[in-house]
Computed example of a mutant assay.
Amino acid sequence: MSTGSRPAQRPRADRERNRDIIVAAARRAFVEADEKGVPVSMNGIARAAQVGVATLYRHFPTRDDLAEAVYQSKLDELTARVAERTHTQNAHTALRTWVQEFASFMLSKRGMMDTLRQGWQSGTITTSDTAARIADVIDQFLREGRDDHSIRSGVEPMDVVMGICALLSTTPPEDDHGSRAQLLLTLFVDGLSTRTT
């Protein structure tokens, strides 16, 4: 039985490895594209990842699919970094730190901010896979906040996501630092605290 299962496992492992290689190459490509102000080339990413174009498109049928994967990998990285930095602090402090880091990340990527604005205006932001992923992260903070009594009860994760997206989307294109959005986000997150002072 065990020998019969190995051939099926290797293709799956190869597929996951190829996907990880493509996402890593795409992350570098998106950084370079942002710096140069040019669109990302799918063919260029395939070359950088040393995979065929057909392999790239099997994993990511569209540029948006690839951008989503890159975004989610960065989101996972950001969340893990915040968890390590705040593991001795209460959930509300951890949530505030995460929101600050998330906002800084979004504001540093003009293409992502443009996508956020479009998604907010069209209403698709609340139904996207990315929104669901962020809501899962927020839900973890909210549950921990209920346990340690640092975050108000009765708060829905998607409501927090919508609040964050709405405040970030107010940032004008010329404001690279988003200082007003950062201030509004701090006020918003502080409103979730159980502290009365």
Results as ranks from 00 to 15, higher is better:
D176A: 15
M113D: 01
D65S: 15
L168V: 04
L116D: 05
D139S: 15
I21D: 10
T171Y: 02
T127H: 14
D136T: 07
Y71P: 00
E156M: 07
A46L: 06
T86A: 04
F105A: 12
F105M: 15
A46R: 02
A46P: 08
M113Q: 11
M1D: 14
V161R: 00
R28G: 05
V189C: 03
R195E: 10
A132C: 01
S104E: 10
V38M: 13
E77W: 07
D148M: 09
D65A: 15
S5D: 11
S169P: 03
R143V: 13
I164L: 11
L184G: 00
A103C: 04
R143I: 08
V53A: 04
Q9N: 09
G163R: 02
R85H: 13
G178R: 07
T130I: 15
D20R: 15
G145F: 09
A181D: 10
I45M: 08
Y71Q: 06
R110E: 08
D65K: 11
V82I: 15
V161W: 01
A69Q: 07
D76S: 12
V23Q: 05
S150N: 08
S2A: 15
G123Y: 09
V155S: 01
R96N: 09
V137S: 06
I45K: 10
G145W: 08
L107V: 05
R143G: 00
Q118Y: 03
E68W: 03
P157E: 07
R27G: 15
A54M: 05
N43S: 12
E68H: 12
S104G: 15
L95N: 03
A49T: 03
Q121I: 08
